[in-house]
Design a protein around this nucleic acid. Structure first.
Lengths: 340, 340
DNA sequence: TTGTACGCGTTATCAC
DNA sequence: GTGATAACGCGTACAA
């Protein structure tokens, strides 16, 4: 492939002049500039970004770590990020981690070798992650997304998970529910799930109700009915379920319906994330909406700010409760006929 | 950041030896090797991939072009690709194009400047795309995904869109439907939609039925009911709809239900893609399933094969009809009461 | 306005 | 085993 030297030669100028014709055309005589560009076209010259990056010590590339793209929350965030990044002249190097801390570490290491200008990441658990403490010692700016770190020392873009789940719980309480439980994936792997659980607990305790332990599923996005069933029967049986994400909620609803439970008449279900598809379901999914596209765009702009030297800041974006049909008023509390 | 020279100096060896300690440790005396690695650790040296890439003329990066990550088909494919690529030591540079041909061209140009080793792309319309003819003249190997090119000269991973939609149409015919229509996004932007339409036409004509013109929506993934309504009323009104993708199908179903149509009793609906969420809906989405994860993995392996010098090949993967509840038997053909 | 010369951090090819 | 040294392709201070 033709390089700048070839172009310069063909245009009858030095490499320096040819280089300037691209980067600072105003410093080059118009006619010379045209000759260079013409020569470049003829040789189908393509500037080598690797060389530029090596030379300028800047890649204009952002490394992105995402747990799982099959979850629309992350896909939608990534979509928004890519658009925002490209608008600013940045490209995205994307990897998935599967909520696996060791893969997170490996991938970050690779990205640092590649000299990305910055990092946007969603880690499994921000509260005890060696990856983050390691990163903090490097000079690469980074931003957490969805993670809600305990400290303010790191940049992050998130909603207030505690308050968000508090809101959702309040909604159920307002509908008359008292026996409310929370379903989540592997809690040890998710700082967010823990915070959301705290929000649930707080709302319950404010009403002098007993918060139940988390009903923990082996998968983040798929319910296991056998683990759920015991919580639903008997006089203490739950009449409403909060789920730690929408995919899990949809899976729960599907499972419930398959066993003959009616949603919301027998059991109300609320999700978390507010993925677009939730609206199309019947019953439509009641959910805590995170502004995923805005979160993505904000993540990019916060990262660029950090690159520009600004101090880290936690950006807390507003959530919203989408009152879907999957959460309804409590039906005749203890006498309702349930099909077990 | 420390470079190899610094490491070499600290270890008391030359740059060459230090380099060998990493790439060919067997050529270096054990003790020397250890000294180098020790020095590297002390200086927290990180090999510079940019320099490696520039020097070796190979980036081990794959450029990926995707229309829209909000569509789970693409997100699921990307997820699979990323895993497969990383297994082989490749990283992914990801961009979205929004079905916009000019953005496709720009993005490809950028990726070529970045010297990606190969390209995986889903273009809006493979049949008349200047991007592809331009690419064919470059030396970068590339693979189309989901696109089904007319020629065999380019590498592609896809299902047989024609046959797939033929199958779906047959399913509706077997259920007794005769007045069947097809709904799609902007057809001019989608080679796949056209092929699928051909499959529909063929199945209809084999039964001596009249294939209707495509009902074309302004968006790829969202229905516009006013454009749909006229096709549903009257004695010639459609009793079944084939949709060019699942998101569109879900949107159609949602619109229908909101207007009082029952699915599938009044109108049967079939989608295309087979996204996972379709299963959770009620009624569950009947759909032509594309093996998205396999497609993603295959795309990577086909691309690597091309990089290894193999000839381009179109890999046609099997589709599958998922018989969901959204497509049911025809109900009392022309006397059924419809709420317009 | 244009040219010269060096550096970016590697890998690879020689010699010793 | 190890050490010089030349690429790789470009940016840019400095000189002309």
């Amino acid at each position: 492939m033709a390089d700048l030297a070839a172009v310069a030669k063909r245009a009858g100028v030095s490499r320096a002049t040819a280089a300037r014709a691209f980067s600072q055309p105003e410093l080059v005589r118009q006619s010379t500039c045209e000759r260079v560009l013409e020569a470049a076209r003829e040789l189908s010259f393509r500037p080598n970004r690797l060389a530029q990056q090596l030379r300028t010590q800047a890649t204009r590339m952002i490394g992105v770590l995402i747990p799982d793209l099959r979850n629309p929350v992350f896909a939608e965030q990534l979509q928004a990020m890519e658009v925002a990044a490209r608008e600013q002249g940045y490209a995205l190097l994307v990897t998935t981690t599967g909520y696996d801390a060791s893969r997170e570490a490996d991938v970050i290491e690779e990205m640092l070798c590649q000299r990305v200008d910055g990092l946007v990441l969603t880690v499994a658990d921000a509260e005890n992650s060696e990856v983050l403490v390691k990163l903090a010692q490097e000079s690469v700016p980074f931003v957490l997304v969805y993670n809600q770190p305990a400290t303010d020392e790191v940049a992050a873009v998130t909603v207030d998970n505690r308050w968000a789940m508090y809101d959702a719980t309040q909604h159920l309480l307002a509908l008359g529910h008292r026996q409310i439980g929370m379903v989540a994936g592997p809690v040890a792997q998710s700082d967010r799930a823990r915070l959301r659980y705290e929000g649930y607990c707080q709302a319950m305790e404010e009403q002098a109700l007993t918060a139940r332990p988390v009903i923990e599923m082996p998968q983040h996005t798929q319910a296991s009915f056998p683990l759920l069933a015991p919580q639903l029967s008997g006089p203490e049986g739950l009449t409403a379920l909060l789920c730690s994400n929408d995919l899990l909620a949809l899976s729960v609803i599907s499972d419930l319906q398959r066993r003959g439970y009616r949603v919301p008449d027998d059991v109300s279900v609320i999700g978390f994330d507010g993925i677009e598809l939730g609206d199309l379901f019947y019953p439509s999914l009641c959910s805590v909406v995170q502004p995923r596209a805005i979160i993505g765009r904000t993540a990019v702009s916060v990262l660029l700010a950090r690159m520009g030297g600004e101090q880290p800041a936690v950006k807390r974006l507003p959530h919203q409760l989408r009152k879907g049909e999957s959460a309804g008023p409590l039906q005749r509390p203890s006498t309702v006929a349930r099909r077990p």
